[in-house]
Simulated assay, not measured.
Amino acid sequence: MSLSRGLRPAPRRAALAVVGVLSAALALSACGGDGNDTSGGNGANFVTSKGGISTVPKGERAGIEEIAGETLEGEKLDVADLKGKVVVLNVWGSWCGPCRAEAPHFAKVANDLKGEDVAFVGLNTRDANKQQALAFEADYKIPYPSLYDRDGKLILFGFPKGTLSPKGIPSTVVLDKEGKIAARALMAIDDTKLRSMIDPLLKEK
């Protein structure tokens, strides 16, 4: 057996290694993050408020990578199709205490802003089966869809390096009407803080 053949990982082993890395990264960040980042890295330029919400000036925002897949209800959803609206991306899991704490606030704001140019999309992660996540949505009367991201691939690869990407569970990232990353919170937030991320973007031309 040649040396090169011996060093080549089997496809199944490679796939398992990727899943392992994803799971480990999410495990380290689960229900973590205090939202107090003060440097963007990689040239990113953002400001973090005392409340832990980071924002990027309009002319300096970056776009996202592909964030698309199947919702918990089995429908296809591509965040790119929502361009023209302010998009709220909320990372959550039914097992996460802070996610349960903020869920009523997200449901309230989503209902309050019906008819406005705003779309809400959940990114459900680390729920072993969809039934747990669907029960969460029903309990908190969540009025918007969530992409099922069990292994966290959308979360880890959907945001360019050095941008305001989600780094904990829960995290919330808000895109402007051009589909660019405008604001982020790395903690559970209430309706007031959520509106402070959305309202300025609704007023942008």
Results as ranks from 00 to 15, higher is better:
R61P: 04
R126I: 02
G43P: 02
S23L: 04
I53S: 02
A133C: 12
L175V: 06
E65R: 11
L123W: 03
E75C: 07
C99D: 02
A30D: 02
S49D: 12
Q131R: 15
L186G: 13
L16N: 15
K193Q: 15
V47E: 15
V19C: 08
R126E: 10
S94L: 07
A107G: 08
D127W: 07
G6K: 15
V47M: 09
S49N: 06
S54P: 10
G41S: 11
G122C: 09
D37Y: 05
A17H: 11
L77M: 12
L202E: 03
A103F: 06
N42G: 00
G43N: 03
G168M: 05
L26Y: 03
G158C: 00
K167Y: 10
V88S: 07
T172K: 01
N45F: 06
V86Q: 09
P98R: 05
G35Q: 00
L89A: 00
K205W: 06
C99W: 06
P145T: 11
E75Q: 15
Y148R: 06
S171N: 11
N42E: 11
A24V: 00
P160F: 09
V79C: 05
T163W: 03
V174A: 02
I198P: 02
V88Y: 08
P170M: 05
G59C: 08
T48F: 04
A110M: 12
A80T: 06
M197R: 06
S23W: 10
A44L: 02
E204N: 03
D127M: 00
R13V: 13
N45Q: 13
A44M: 10
K193N: 13
I189H: 02
V174R: 04
N124D: 14
P57R: 11
G162I: 10
G115F: 13
C31G: 04
L186M: 14
L72S: 14
G51E: 15
A101Q: 09
K167P: 07
L201A: 08
E60C: 00
E66P: 03
G168H: 01
E73T: 12
D78W: 03
K153A: 14
K83N: 05
D191Y: 10
T172E: 03
N129C: 12
A68R: 15
A128F: 12
R12N: 00
I189T: 08
G93S: 15
G93K: 02
D117Y: 01
D139L: 13
